[in-house]
Design a protein around this nucleic acid. Structure first.
Lengths: 195, 195
DNA sequence: GAGTTTAGCTAGCGCTTGTTAGGTGAGGTG
DNA sequence: CACCTCACCTAACAAGCGCTAGCTAAACTC
């Protein structure tokens, strides 16, 4: 693939990502995508084989980003609590850095056909296990309270994964600020200290 | 509408709810719904005018449930913290009581056409404002820490609204248990007390 | 400058979509 | 017993879907 061709492919993927995020995979036709690129529908097939390939590549790229952000932190020798703090910051960064990518990642994977859907959910579960491992270590080391490890993991993930729903690049909070506030609320709780 | 007709309509709505939750609105055809009811596609139109009506009624019913659960708590004269505790329990109850209804409520509203989508999001915002009001009162009364009121509200809502993704009726946790654990983690935080 | 590659075009395929018109037959009503 | 209601049927419609075959023309390669 030449540089020009690769660049054009990137435009295609970016366009599909935007539309899938805004309308959903099923509600976006290949004609919609083509029109947004100012080409004809049939011409898309110079770059891809099927519409689902587009979804698959977007989802894979999204998963790659989450792992790329998390792996070095998981493998570091920081204390669990500091790992968790950094992982939250990294995860939030990935989401705010590409909110439409995150939207597709959270919502559209179920339109994959069987084999790929299985592979996707397996990677998703693997990521959850990564987070859970840190939570477990934190409980063992006594930095975290003695809580239900699975439930706590879901609480952390759910609070992070909701962000793409309301985050706007031109909003009042920076990604760092979001991560900082989220970490503080999750760790310290909402109740007034000493109440 | 006779009783028989109303009952049949309920079956239709329940069937559509299941399928919309499992596959999404756009990926569910009226033929799919008809087949699940063991009738022909055209026969659906004895009960509804358009496919979107189905989605609209399901979404409206879902919103009604959340408000019906929250209103008496909001209007009670309990202390803010106790209000929040009860609201979380009620909200979780609605979600676990009808996980597929919750799934449609969270994911499919964007397939409404303009007018209805606007009306839906307005109600959703109104519900968020309800929760936010309690959080504000809690901060003022000193029961809650001095935190970003909007952000705290989103944290609470996001952690509740994620539950339908993993909750199973035959799972190990009862709705009450979920609400209790969630409340405790949200209020006390994940960090070990006094650490 | 001949030869090759390739992004995009046109035209159309087989199929599915939501929806409609008109008919059938069982059950209830007077 | 005649009448009516209505849940459901059959058959078809116009439009849209993903995708393909065969072509054009511009840009690269040697």
């Amino acid at each position: 693939m030449t540089e020009v061709a690769a660049a054009r492919r990137d435009v295609l993927l970016a366009t599909a990502e935007q539309l899938f995020a805004a309308r959903g995979y099923q509600a976006t036709s290949v004609r919609d995508i083509a029109e947004a690129m100012d080409i004809k529908a049939g011409s898309l097939y110079a770059h891809i084989e099927t519409k689902e390939d587009l979804l698959w590549e977007i989802l894979t790229a999204a998963a790659d980003r989450f792992f790329a952000a998390a792996d070095p932190i998981v493998e570091s020798d920081l204390l669990p609590m500091e790992k968790l703090r950094q992982l939250i910051a990294a995860h939030v960064q990935v989401i705010t850095d590409g909110a439409s990518l995150a939207a597709v990642y959270m919502n559209e994977w179920r339109h994959l056909t069987d084999l790929r859907r299985t592979e996707f959910t397996a990677r998703r579960d693997a990521y959850e296990a990564l987070v859970r491992g840190i939570v477990r270590d934190g409980i063992r080391s006594g930095e975290l309270a003695d809580l239900d490890e699975k439930f706590a993991t879901l609480l952390i993930l759910s609070s992070m994964n909701w962000i793409y729903q309301w985050y706007r690049t031109d909003g009042p909070m920076t990604p760092d600020e979001i991560a900082r506030k989220l970490t503080e609320m999750l760790f310290k709780g909402l109740r007034r200290a000493g109440a």
